[in-house]
Amino acid sequence: MALPADSDYRPDALDRRVAGLAAVAIAIHVLEAGFPSPVPGIKPGLANVVTLVALLRHGVACAAWVAGLRVLVGSLLVGSFLTPTFWLSATGAVSAFVVLAAAYAVGRAVPALRLSAVGLSVLAAMAHMTGQFMVAWTVFLPHAGLTVLLPVLLAAALVFGLASGLVALRVLDRMQRLERAPEAGGY
């Protein structure tokens, strides 16, 4: 989203939204990276809340930008760009996003299958973990013993996915209320 300085190009609404949401996501991403995790591979994944909010409020394109920028800029800031951590994070983000977009599209087409933030978040978290695990297992540590961890990791993803889904629900609710108030800015 870098703009040429001497252009008369004006950032449109999508640009501003993406910039704002991505900034929040990156901040959370960096903060999460700073906290040591008790079990390697398990993180709450709160940054996904922002992707989720972007998706539900502004659609697939906005969410894709937010997720992509978050992984890229976040890893640059944390210093993990192009390291194994980055690839794991990127694979996770891509897997999560693909599943998220698919579930969102299905929900639009068939209202009966429409998921709220909680369902989407759990799906995304599981996809994130599965994608990450496949890369970790096949590329970085092809050791059969690793699969023993999979149930634990997936269970953690389920719980954290639920948690961030609930947070996303709250955030969306708040944003809606703020919007109703006339002086609210909001994204």
Binding site: A103, G107, A112, L113, R114, L115, S116, V118, G119, V122, L123, M126, L150, P151, L154, A155, L158, L162, L169
Partner: peptide, 20 residues
């Protein structure tokens, strides 16, 4: 929160149980 949410979450829980 929708009915589909409940279904999806329960299904995923079953998947986790099955993997375990």
């Amino acid at each position: 929160m929708t009915r589909a949410d409940v279904v999806v979450i329960l299904l995923l829980a079953v998947v986790v149980g099955w993997v375990a």
